[in-house]
């Protein structure tokens, strides 16, 4: 084992135990607080665990609906956002005009659109997906645009002078150069997409984890609400992990 590896091992070992202790402390504090309150006010970790197991069908069903909405909105944000970023990076006029519009729209928290969207579109997947789209679009566009703009102009000139086809130009020259920032935007957009979908569903949607948490409130089932939160957290974390792994795999050619 090299000195670096030994150091790394020691550092990890040095951090893992306190990390576990920290989580244990959190769970202990939760259990302590729950002991002072009746289960219909604050259920303890054991109650929540049992609820998660008992209601896993419901949780899975709602998780699927939420994931679908996130996928719809996020997919649209990527599908529209990346080309849009390319346009903004390429054309100063478009950058100013569309950029101003985006700046205005970006300032409105996506969640603020829910009442209007409920009026216009009702409770279907559309409203939630649009909120997700609005949440994810701006970070994706902003980071991707910065990424595209950051590709060294010399490289672009060289590619053009060498007669690169549009396909090679975009896929082999521009994208790899812009990739790190694009990914950063994709990750940020994903996090915001999750925040947005939960917020949208909490107000009124047809099914979904946020809706389930809302219903749990109406029925005075905080254990179900917490179970829903656990599910959301787990899904968000898992999907973020997948995204990071995809990023590492794609960028593995970088030193």
């Amino acid at each position: 084992m090299s000195a670096t590896e030994r150091l790394a091992g020691a550092a990890l070992g040095g951090r893992r135990l306190p990390g576990a202790l920290g989580i244990a402390a959190l769970l202990a504090a939760w259990a302590l607080a729950a002991a002072r309150w009746p289960p219909h006010v604050l259920p303890g970790p054991d109650v929540v665990l049992r609820t998660v197991l008992d209601e896993r069908a419901l949780l899975l069903h709602n998780a699927a609906r939420t994931l679908w909405r996130v996928a719809l909105g996020y997919g649209a944000a990527v599908g529209i956002g990346l080309p849009l970023a390319g346009l903004l990076a390429g054309s100063p006029l478009a950058d100013r005009q569309v950029g101003s519009l985006l700046t205005l729209l970006r300032a409105i928290p996506p969640f603020a659109w829910t009442p209007i969207l409920l009026l216009w579109l009702g409770i279907g997947d559309g409203s939630a997906a649009i909120i997700v789209f609005l949440g994810a679009l701006f970070p994706i566009v902003r980071q991707a645009r910065a990424g595209f703009a950051a590709v060294p102009p010399a490289l672009l000139l060289a590619a053009r002078n060498l007669g690169a086809s549009p396909r090679i130009y975009w896929i082999d020259v521009v994208l790899p150069g812009a990739a790190p920032m694009v990914f950063s935007g994709l990750r940020l957009g994903w996090a915001l997409a999750w925040m947005s979908v939960v917020a949208a569903e909490l107000v009124g949607a047809d099914g979904g984890l946020g809706q389930m948490i809302l219903d749990a409130r109406n029925l005075a089932r905080p254990d179900l609400a917490i179970a829903g939160m656990v599910a959301i957290g787990a899904l968000a974390a898992a999907s973020e992990g997948l995204l990071t792994a995809a990023e590492r795999h794609t960028l593995r050619w970088r030193p």
Binding site: L118, L119, L121, G122, I123, G204, D206, N218
Partner: peptide
Amino acid sequence: LAGMSMREAQLLPAGT
């Protein structure tokens, strides 16, 4: 059932 608040239901939103 689609759970929602009374203030939302009274608007008879699309989807119901």
